[in-house]
């Protein structure tokens, strides 16, 4: 049932990358519980604009949970309190009248803040550049049914491929590790026969790139898995580690 609630927001405001930021408090009145979290911020921003103040900058695009553009730490949890949900799909009915909600950007050395809640996640693109692909040019592929792939393998690959690259795994990890992100891509491609020829080199290159970009290591906290909006399993990290060690042992490419 639709109702209206009044809430208080403590929002991280920061003008740009180099400057000091801090929390500011806003009161949001008559927020319909049918609103999405981002629509609630829209409403606050409309009011800030009319009041002659700078609206809160935040990234978002598809607003249906698939593009991976949105994300913020809400009351200490990446994408907020609801499991398996991106921030855009979180609804205000998860909050109560009188609540105070703390909203912060992803915090990780590899994701510098651009403004307010918007961060630079280009480090994720760099990890993919390092090897997150199968080296196939357009035009020369054999018939799509030439290599049968068992349903089980295809489904596992799809589980890993569901990653939306939002960065919640990094934001929730005490080490700011990107292992779940990289592990998902390495797993997807390592599981499929098409990805096997480059599997060793891919694992080495992507893991090295992660280190180079200042992402931390995995210490099995499992926060990434708990906060991942697509519920990607940390078994993908184990698979990545296997690929990495296999590639390393006696390999010339190490």
């Amino acid at each position: 049932m639709t109702k209206s609630i009044n809430i208080t927001l403590n929002v991280w405001r920061q003008k740009s990358a180099g400057v000091k930021g801090g929390f500011e408090t806003y009161h949001a009145a008559n927020i319909s519980t049918d609103m999405s979290f981002l629509e609630m911020i829209d409403v606050v921003n409309e009011q800030l604009t009319l009041d002659g103040r700078d609206p809160i900058a935040f990234d978002h695009d598809c607003r249906e949970g698939i593009c991976g553009m949105c994300g913020a730490v809400v009351n200490g949890r990446a994408h907020g309190p609801e499991e398996g949900t991106t921030l855009c799909q979180l609804h205000m009915r998860y909050f109560s009248n009188g609540d105070t909600i703390v909203i912060e950007p992803w915090r990780a050395k590899a994701f510098p803040i651009l403004k307010d809640l918007a961060v630079d996640r280009s480090a994720f693109d760099e990890i993919i550049v390092a090897g997150g692909y199968i080296s196939v040019n357009t035009g020369g592929a054999p018939d799509a049914n030439a290599i049968p792939i068992s349903q089980e393998i295809a489904e596992k690959a799809m589980d890993a491929a569901a990653c939306i690259g939002c960065g919640a795994c990094v934001a929730s990890c005490p080490n700011a590790s990107a292992m779940l992100f990289a592990g998902a891509k390495i797993s997807q491609l390592a599981l499929l026969p098409q990805g096997r020829p480059e599997a060793a080199q891919r694992a080495l290159a992507m893991v090295r790139k992660m280190d180079e970009l200042c992402f931390g290591n995995c210490s099995n906290e499992r926060e990434c898995e708990a906060e991942c909006p697509k519920e990607i399993s940390i078994s993908n990290i184990a698979r990545m580690n296997r690929e990495f060690f296999k590639a390393g042992i006696g390999s010339a490419v190490m």
Binding site: I134, A144, P148, Q188
Partner: peptide, 22 residues
Amino acid sequence: NHIIDHCVAQGIPFAREYGGLL
């Protein structure tokens, strides 16, 4: 038809039948 061939070669995990075909 070429699109499907290329996408499979890229590692896109399309849905498959029990026998392993698309």
